[in-house]
Amino acid sequence: MMPLSRTQLGLFFILLCPANIIGLWWAVGSPLVMDPNSICRKTKRLAGKQAELCQTEPEIVSEVVKGAKMAVRECQYQFRSRRWNCTSHNKYFGKILQQDIRETAFVYAITAAGVIHTVTQACSMGELMQCGCEVTRNWAPPSPQANGRGAEGSAWEWGGCGDDVEYGYEKSRQFMDAKRKKGKSDIRTLIDLHNNEAGRMAVKNYMRTECKCHGLSGSCTLQTCWKKMPHFREVGDRLLERFNGAFKVMGGNDGKTIIPVGHNIKPPDKLDLIYSADSPDFCQANRKTGSPGTRGRVCNSTGLDVGGCDLLCCGRGYREETVVVEESCLCRFHWCCVVNCNKCTVKKELSICL
């Protein structure tokens, strides 16, 4: 995966923001640097909660930026073997986000999830003055095996530093949903708001319980337990599943509801991703649809899945190419605690889409 430049990240972030910032980006003619100060200097062109956060809580905007960066990396990991691989370092990427296709649904969801995740994590780490660990609530007792170390009958108590996901949820909602108010006959707004919420729910609804045992000689006479967010890779995996089963929808007659397309299809719930337009096949580069094409992509000549040459190369075939790469080899562990490796050059056979 190629590293993202600040300019590429800026493009990704600005295009994800509400329509007023998209207009600002096109007016400027070049993407804003992925920097909270650069974003907040534009507050005269922002409104509502976004401007308020920039003016009163710029440190929150810094976490929003981190969340967007994390979302980019996760999107590229999840789609690394697909025809559309979430590549943001090309001139076509903006076209993708202007369509109501399922790829856009994933991008919005993973970004909203990234923002809730980074803001909540910053609270737990003590990096934000206005929040901290979660306030203990009257939850049901945790499972005795919540962390694999508990024992039946051991006493327990809520403690430690639980993640205050409610605070992260609210800040993600304020920033990501700003200027995306539900309006009459605005199917795009309804879809964006729904996918933002699906991303947040992929974090909020899957909090896990962690416990630490206390007692003499390794016994577990008392457990201290707290709530933690799922790892972000789990969030990405879960949203990819939702992407694969995304619902095609259309706007209802009242302009305020969405209904699934097709017969005998259950309505999507809050965890589902939704879209209204079919995706292009992404086989050929196409400026109009935003497809970068798959020519030159590395494929798996023996695979039959989405990364296999037959699917990835769209039936055009592929060529075999030998490349020389440098890898770490003959690694040795030295006490304590360093691993020293030599550099070796090896030849690799790659399959490249025609």
Results as ranks from 00 to 15, higher is better:
1 M>C: 06
1 M>Q: 14
3 P>E: 14
5 S>D: 12
17 C>P: 03
19 A>K: 11
23 G>E: 13
24 L>Y: 00
26 W>M: 13
27 A>S: 14
29 G>F: 02
33 V>N: 11
41 R>D: 14
42 K>R: 13
51 A>I: 00
53 L>G: 04
56 T>F: 05
57 E>C: 10
58 P>Y: 07
59 E>Q: 07
60 I>Y: 01
61 V>D: 00
62 S>G: 07
63 E>A: 09
64 V>H: 04
64 V>D: 04
75 C>W: 01
82 R>M: 09
84 W>N: 00
84 W>G: 01
87 T>H: 10
91 K>N: 11
92 Y>F: 06
93 F>H: 08
98 Q>A: 13
99 Q>D: 13
99 Q>C: 07
101 I>M: 08
101 I>D: 02
105 A>P: 00
108 Y>P: 01
109 A>P: 02
118 T>V: 06
120 T>M: 06
124 S>K: 11
128 L>V: 03
130 Q>E: 14
131 C>K: 01
139 W>N: 09
140 A>F: 11
140 A>N: 06
142 P>E: 08
155 A>L: 15
158 W>K: 01
161 C>G: 08
162 G>L: 06
163 D>C: 10
165 V>S: 01
166 E>W: 07
167 Y>E: 10
167 Y>P: 03
168 G>W: 02
171 K>D: 03
172 S>P: 00
175 F>I: 11
175 F>V: 13
179 K>N: 10
183 G>L: 06
184 K>V: 05
187 I>R: 06
188 R>M: 14
191 I>G: 01
194 H>G: 04
198 A>V: 00
200 R>E: 04
200 R>Y: 02
200 R>T: 03
201 M>P: 00
206 Y>P: 02
207 M>P: 02
209 T>V: 15
213 C>Y: 00
213 C>N: 08
216 L>T: 15
217 S>I: 12
219 S>E: 14
222 L>N: 03
222 L>C: 08
225 C>T: 08
226 W>Q: 00
227 K>R: 15
230 P>E: 11
233 R>T: 13
234 E>M: 09
235 V>S: 01
237 D>M: 09
243 F>D: 05
244 N>R: 08
248 K>N: 10
250 M>P: 00
250 M>R: 13
250 M>Y: 00
252 G>V: 01
258 I>N: 00
260 P>V: 11
267 P>Y: 15
269 D>G: 11
270 K>N: 15
275 Y>A: 04
275 Y>Q: 03
281 D>L: 10
286 N>I: 06
288 K>Y: 10
291 S>M: 04
293 G>L: 10
293 G>A: 05
293 G>V: 08
294 T>F: 02
295 R>I: 15
297 R>L: 14
300 N>L: 14
301 S>Y: 09
304 L>Q: 15
306 V>N: 06
306 V>K: 02
309 C>F: 05
313 C>L: 12
313 C>R: 05
318 Y>W: 15
319 R>V: 08
324 V>R: 12
325 V>L: 06
328 S>G: 02
329 C>G: 07
330 L>Q: 13
330 L>T: 11
331 C>M: 11
336 C>V: 00
337 C>G: 09
339 V>R: 04
343 K>N: 07
344 C>A: 08
347 K>Q: 15
351 S>L: 09
351 S>F: 12
354 L>P: 11
